[in-house]
Amino acid sequence: MNPAITLFTSRFQQFRPEQGVPVRITRGAPRFRLPYQLLHTVAELAPGAAYFNRPQPEFTAAYRADLAALGAHRIAERLGAIAEQEREQRLVLLCFEDLAKPNEWCHRRIFAEWWLEATGDQVRELGPMAGPSPYEQGTLL
């Protein structure tokens, strides 16, 4: 949708500055020390309080409804403004979950699936994920 940005996802603990601009998409900030500066937050992409602790199917439906209400165009504008400010097209959307653990799931990957459907743009995970293929995207070359 927006050729000026390329989106990735990862967790706070695995992000490295050479991967792009870190962007927090969580309700709360990390309570641990990060080895990089975290200057950007897109609170609109954090899960809502009303469904935050719901089972995965309910959470997914509610989160996707929130994303649809925001709309891909509005989200792209918000993320594009960060990319323009930072003069960097690669944005890495960050949260806490370790997707290398079996049966772990996370809103960042729900967002990635929704974004692909809404825009046709793929959002790759920059860390290991449980399953037959442990990496969706391992490195940025």
Rank of each mutant, 00 (worst) to 15 (best):
L140H: 04
H107Y: 05
V123C: 03
G120L: 06
F111Q: 13
A100K: 15
A50D: 15
E88P: 00
A118L: 01
R124N: 07
R54L: 07
Q19I: 03
T41R: 12
I75M: 07
V123G: 04
Q19C: 10
L39D: 14
E44Q: 15
L38F: 07
R64S: 00
A72G: 03
L140E: 02
F12S: 08
Q85E: 14
L140T: 09
E88R: 15
E58A: 15
E18C: 00
R74Y: 05
Q19G: 00
S133E: 13
T9H: 06
E58D: 15
C106G: 10
Y135N: 08
R27M: 10
F15C: 05
G80R: 03
C95A: 14
A29W: 12
E104Y: 04
P30T: 02
P30N: 06
E136N: 11
N2Q: 12
F15D: 04
Q85P: 00
R64F: 00
I25Y: 02
L126V: 00
F15R: 03
F111T: 12
L116M: 01
P22A: 07
L70N: 04
Q14D: 15
G71M: 08
E86G: 08
V92R: 14
Q137G: 14
I25R: 02
I82H: 07
E136W: 11
L126D: 01
Y135R: 09
E84I: 02
P102S: 12
L140I: 15
M1D: 12
R124P: 00
A46E: 03
A69C: 12
V23W: 08
G138S: 11
F12H: 09
A112T: 04
T9A: 10
L94I: 06
P134C: 01
H73V: 14
W115E: 03
F96L: 11
D121A: 11
C106I: 11
L39S: 09
D66V: 03
P128L: 02
F111S: 09
G131T: 06
M129H: 02
L45W: 09
V42K: 04
D66Y: 00
E136T: 07
Q137H: 15
R64Q: 13
H40L: 02
G127L: 00
R64L: 07
L45A: 11
T60N: 09
H40A: 05
T9G: 06
Y51T: 01
A76V: 04
Q56F: 13
A50C: 06
L99H: 05
Q56K: 14
K101C: 07
R109H: 06
H107W: 07
W105N: 08
M129S: 02
R33A: 14
G48S: 10
Q37E: 14
P35F: 01
